[in-house]
Amino acid sequence: MFEAVLSNGSTLKKIFEGIKDLCTDVNFDVSSEGIKLQAMDSSHVSLVSLELHTDVFEQFRCDRDSMTLGLNMKSVTQIFKICGNDDSVTMRAEDEGETLEFTFEKGEDRVSTFELKLMDIDSEHLGIPDTEYQCNVKLPCSEYQRICRDMAGFGDNMTIDCQKGGVTFSVDGEVGKGKIFLKHQPNVEEKHKVIVTVKEGVELDFALRYLNNFAKAAPLSDHVQLGLNSDTPLSVRFDIEDKATLGSLKFFLAPKIKE
């Protein structure tokens, strides 16, 4: 049997909101270590990787070595509309069960339950190596969200140019070109901090449609971390409640290849 209780149900709600427009069906891979999810978008240029460690849950039980729970994202987000922001969530599935039961509770006054039919989803797991990035950028989620939204008005692709001292986001579209520079700002108050760590400068182009999609996970944490290496996928990482010990939601995006 699998049973997990999360007092802060909105965390799960935010996770599903963050991935629902990228993936239609996903597998929840449950083990005694927690929950993992890996899924690609339909065009196979981006990858979502979720890790929820048991520390994020108040209670966690998985009797089997592993269980795979196939979820339709549209149905899950529909179910999570039932979940209030202060509700706790309990997920429960029998070993050979065909459903995942969600219970949303606020105290003992209001208890809602929904049994979701599980799906059989074929998915291949890719091996994501532990990568040391040439450039790491930590910036407020609100800033990331704003840059991607504003730049999407001018073009389809955005160049991220990371150099010592700061990072430049630029777009070159039909009406003209523009750029936004964020300076390495380690000594300001936490919510405005921008940390740019560079071993070697990297400049890459990415599709704004995907960068904007990843921004939907912004409510999960205060800061987002970008990892860049030349000619490898960009990593966009949201630590759950800004604590890597609880887990993370990571997105990977293949760079545009310049002609």
């Binding site: 091996g127 490898t232 990977f252 290849i257 310049k258």
Partner: peptide, 14 residues
């Protein structure tokens, strides 16, 4: 238009 490689080409199947 610049192209894009599939994400599988970067991450090996274990």
């Amino acid at each position: 238009k610049p192209g894009q490689k599939k994400i599988e080409s970067y991450f090996a199947l274990p």
